[in-house]
Structures are given as structure tokens and as C-alpha cells.
Nucleic acid binder design. Structure first.
Lengths: 137, 137
DNA sequence: ATGGCATGTGTTATAATGTAACGCAATCGA
DNA sequence: TCGATTGCGTTACATTATAACACATGCCAT
């Protein structure tokens, strides 16, 4: 374990640990400013402290950004470092987000791209609808 | 053709026509504020004028919102009113966006959602990578 | 070991994106 | 004709995101 600054358990710095913790314990996605507000009493004062930690956590694959919500969630899978395509199901009623996985889908999309002369690197898929709990049929 | 206000060719109002025109003639996606700037000399003064037109055009299926870019593009298909899943390929080099279509993909995603107890209503898919022109191999 | 580099931090200020709330006007339909 | 709907214009504001600067820490190649 290579340590830079003062690092905590997973090799994260203090700020990164705090931001990751906030997202891990949240019921649903959090905006950067919601995280900032939660962490004010831990010494956070400015949005950049949050955004910088978020950038790092994303690059580590520990969290994901929900483009259509301008917010962030902790990764729900043990290991999705290597995955290029995320699928998020966003419930329009309760606001909760679940992260789906389907490798064949990823391949299919990549193939669709290639057929159109596009070399895909990453892919974000965000569904809107109703989750099981909010539409129990 | 039902006319409300002063309507132009396609049943659009003046503001909607101007905004749609700006997007139609653009090389790539435009942000709301980029549209606003283009239309200042047509009398546009405030972001809401743009956003309201955008909302309407989106609901008509004439344009799409790119969630990961906070910007907008004119629809490239003659008719995609009915389509629920859009696929956009965003070139990270030239910034151009192409709109792909694949019905089987839409079904596959919907099925994936259903397997996870999620009833999908709409879906946004945004790819990042290199387009044909920017990576000609 | 030391000097340069990469990374992380803290701060202030500002940019970019998006809405709320008000009043008004035009059209449609019962 | 009157109420509902839709659109317009405006002011003010909320939310989301970065730029720029100064400094600290650990790595590592010389």
C-alpha cells in the first residue's frame, strides 16, 4: 500500500474517506452540495473539496456519477473497476437508484457503435421508471 | 393544425422556431446559454425563454437533451416521437454527436430492467469515444 | 539528500446551468 | 362568454461546477 498523504483504511485520504462515507451511508444519490452540507462539521468549507474527492473516487471506480441527476452514488458492486458500461435504474417516485449489470448489453452497445463507425470507450445508461417498491405489480 | 399563439411552419411558436432553428443549424450540441447568446439579436433576453422552448421541443420529440453534456441537439431521425430509448455517440475529440437507433437494444434494456423489478419508462444512453472522422481506422 | 514532480489540500472568487414567481396575452373549448 | 391552457417577458434566485493561487506532503531520480 503506497501512502501519500495521511491515508485511511482503503488508501483514501481523509477527504476522500469522508465523501465516500457520506455516499455509502446515503439512501439515494447525493449532489455535491448535499455532501458538502453533510461534511461541514467535519471541516469542509468549499465545493472544491467535495468535487476533488468525487473525481478521485470516480477514477477509482468506487462511486459513479448520475449524469441525468447531477449527483453521485456509491458503487453497489464489489468490483466494477473494469466495467465500461454502467446501467442505473432511477425510480421517479422514491428517488432510489439501483445499479444493474449486463455484460451482453455492453457488448451489444459496443457493436452498435462500431457498426456506425464509432469507437466506444465508455457508456452511461440511465433508466427512468418505477422500482419494485413503488410499483408492486 | 391547431394554432395557439402566432405559429410558424411546423406549428411552433416564434420562440420555439428560433430555438429549433439554432439547434438544427448547429454543428454539434448547444447549451441553453449558447442558444440564448445566438438569439439575443432576435429579442431573447432571459434563459427562461430558451428553457421553455427547449422543454416544448423535447416533449415534441424534435430535439433531445444530452444529460452528460448539459446540452441539446436537434433530432437526427425523421420520426422518433415514439422511441423511448435514445442512443447518442459523443465524440470526445470533435464534439460531434450522432444519434444511433436499435430497437432490439431498447427491448433488451427493458427486459433487463424488468428482471430487476424495475418498470422502465424512458432511457438515456450516452457513449463516449471517437467518431469515424477522428479515428479513421 | 535534495530538488523536481505528482498529488492533495484550503481558500476566494467566479462561471455555468437551471428555476420560482409574478403578471400578462392569446387561444381553445364547454 | 368564461374558465382553462399555453405561451410570453421579466426579475430575482438557486444549483452545479471551475479557475487560480498558495501551500504541504510524499515519491523518486539524480
Amino acid at each position: 500500500m503506497k501512502s501519500d498523504h495521511h491515508r485511511s483504511p482503503m488508501g483514501l485520504t481523509k477527504n476522500q474517506t469522508l465523501v465516500f462515507g457520506a455516499l455509502s451511508h446515503a439512501e439515494g444519490p447525493l449532489s455535491a452540495y448535499a455532501i458538502l452540507d453533510q461534511l461541514r462539521d467535519k471541516g469542509f468549507r468549499a465545493p472544491l473539496q467535495v468535487y476533488r474527492a468525487l473525481d478521485k473516487l470516480i477514477s477509482l471506480g468506487l462511486i459513479h456519477r448520475l449524469e441525468s441527476l447531477n449527483s453521485f452514488v456509491a458503487c453497489q458492486h464489489p468490483e466494477c473497476d473494469d466495467r465500461e458500461s454502467m446501467v442505473f435504474a432511477i425510480c421517479e417516485i422514491c428517488g432510489k437508484v439501483s445499479e444493474l449489470a449486463d455484460d451482453s448489453l455492453e457488448n451489444q452497445i459496443k457493436t452498435l457503435a462500431k457498426r456506425n463507425g464509432f469507437s466506444m470507450k465508455t457508456c452511461a445508461i440511465e433508466l427512468r421508471g418505477h422500482c419494485r417498491d413503488c410499483r408492486p405489480n
